[in-house]
C-alpha cells in the first residue's frame, strides 16, 4: 500500500491583500523504501509542501486537498494526533543544523528525548539507544559524544545528529529540506552516502527537497520539478534527467555550469524571474519565460502530457531536450 499519497494539495497563506496560493493542486505518491526528490527554486512551493505534510504550516495558512499517510488524512487530523505522528512516524530534518538543535542541551539528551516521549524508554535505555544511533550515522566515539553540546560539533556532525534525532523512532517517512545545502562539498558527499545507506537499512521513505538537481539526482528514485507553486514535471530520476520534457526543466539544466560548459561559453540562463504568487499570470505559470510559449499558454493552464507511463509534464509542447 502506498505510504504517502498527496492529492490536489493547495496551500494558501494569509496576506493583507488576501490569501496567496503558494502551492496549487500538487499530487504525488511515495512508496516505502522509495525516495522522491522535489526540485525547485525559491518560491516554487517545495518547502511549503513539506510543511503541510508534517502539519507545521505557518499560522493562518490553510491547506486543501488530501495528504494520506497509510490511508489516514493528515489534513483532517487533530493537532494531538499530529503530535503523536511527528517525530514518530514522520520526521523532518532541516537545512541549518545549528539552529535546529537546541544549543543549551547535550546532543545525547536531545536524541534520547524522542525515544522517551514516543517509545516510552527510560533515560538510561534511551541514552544507550542514542549512542547506537549516533554510531550508525557515523559519529566517531558516539558514547563520549553524547555529552557534547551542539556548538562543539562541526556542521557535518550536527547534521548527522539531526539525522540520528529524526531516525530515533524509526519513522516511516523522513522529510529532508535542503539537508546538505549549508554543508561543504566533501561533507555533502558524506551525508548523501549516509542517507542512501539509511534508506536501505531502515526501509523508510525519503522526501528530499532541494534546489540542487545534482544532489537530488544522487539519491532520488523519482523526481518532481515544481515551479511557482505548481508541479511542472514528474518522473523516474534517470528518465526525467535524460528527457527533460518540460521547458522549465530544460531551462534549469541549461543554466547549470557543468563540465561541458567551457569557459567563455554563455550559460543558457532562463530570462526573467519567478513570478510572485500574487502576480501569477493566467495560463501556464512559466509562459513569460518560456522559449516555446504560444498564445494558448497565456490563456489556459496546460494539462498533463504523458511521456511514459510514469513520466508526465504539464505542458502543451513537451519534448525531449537537445
Amino acid at each position: 500500500m502506498t505510504l504517502l499519497a498527496v492529492e490536489g494539495l493547495t496551500i494558501s497563506l494569509p496576506t493583507p491583500g488576501g490569501p496567496l496560493r503558494v502551492v496549487r493542486d500538487a499530487s504525488f505518491a511515495l512508496e516505502r523504501r522509495q525516495t522522491l526528490g522535489i526540485v525547485g527554486e525559491s518560491g516554487s512551493g517545495k518547502s511549503m509542501t513539506a510543511l503541510a505534510i508534517i502539519g507545521l504550516l505557518p499560522a493562518g495558512a490553510t491547506a486543501a486537498g488530501r495528504v494520506m499517510l497509510d490511508g489516514e488524512d493528515l489534513l483532517m487530523a487533530s493537532e494531538e494526533r499530529l503530535c503523536a505522528l511527528r517525530g514518530n512516524r514522520i520526521a523532518m530534518i532541516f537545512q541549518e543544523p545549528m539552529t535546529s538543535l537546541n544549543p543549551v542541551h547535550r546532543v545525547g539528551d536531545q536524541v534520547a528525548e524522542g525515544l522517551i516521549l514516543h517509545r516510552g524508554l527510560d533515560r538510561a535505555a534511551a541514552l544507550a539507544e542514542a549512542a547506537r544511533l549516533l554510531d550508525r550515522v557515523g559519529i566517531a566515539q558516539a558514547g563520549a559524544r553524547l555529552r557534547a553540546y551542539p556548538h562543539e560539533l562541526s556542521g557535518g556532525q550536527r547534521q548527522r545528529v539531526m539525522i540520528a534525532l529524526a531516525l530515533a523512532c524509526r519513522p516511516d517517512l523522513l522529510i529532508a529540506d535542503e539537508p546538505t545545502s549549508a554543508l561543504d562539498v566533501t561533507v555533502q558527499a558524506q551525508i548523501i552516502e549516509l542517507l542512501r545507506g539509511l534508506i536501505d537499512d531502515f526501509g523508510m521513505a525519503l522526501l528530499l527537497i532541494s534546489h540542487d538537481l545534482a544532489v537530488v539526482g544522487e539519491i532520488a528514485d523519482r523526481v518532481m520539478v515544481m515551479y511557482a507553486g505548481a508541479v511542472a514535471e514528474e518522473g523516474p530520476t534517470a528518465a526525467l534527467y535524460a528527457v527533460r520534457a518540460h521547458p522549465y526543466t530544460q531551462g534549469l539544466f541549461g543554466a547549470l555550469p557543468d563540465r561541458l560548459a567551457r569557459k567563455g561559453r554563455r550559460l543558457a540562463a532562463i530570462p526573467g524571474t519567478v513570478p510572485l504568487a500574487n502576480e501569477l499570470p493566467p495560463g501556464c505559470p512559466f509562459h513569460g519565460r518560456c522559449p516555446k510559449a504560444a498564445p494558448i499558454c497565456r490563456e489556459t493552464p496546460p494539462p498533463w502530457a504523458s511521456h511514459a507511463a510514469d513520466h508526465r509534464a504539464r505542458c502543451y509542447f513537451p519534448g525531449a531536450a537537445r
Binding site: 555533502q188 558527499a189 538537481l213 545534482a214 544532489v215 544522487e218 530520476t237 534517470a238
Partner: peptide, 12 residues
C-alpha cells in the same frame, strides 16, 4: 569527486 554527477543521476 564529491561533486554530484548529473550524467549519473538515478544510478546511485
Amino acid at each position: 569527486d564529491a561533486v554530484p554527477d548529473l550524467a549519473a543521476a538515478g544510478t546511485r
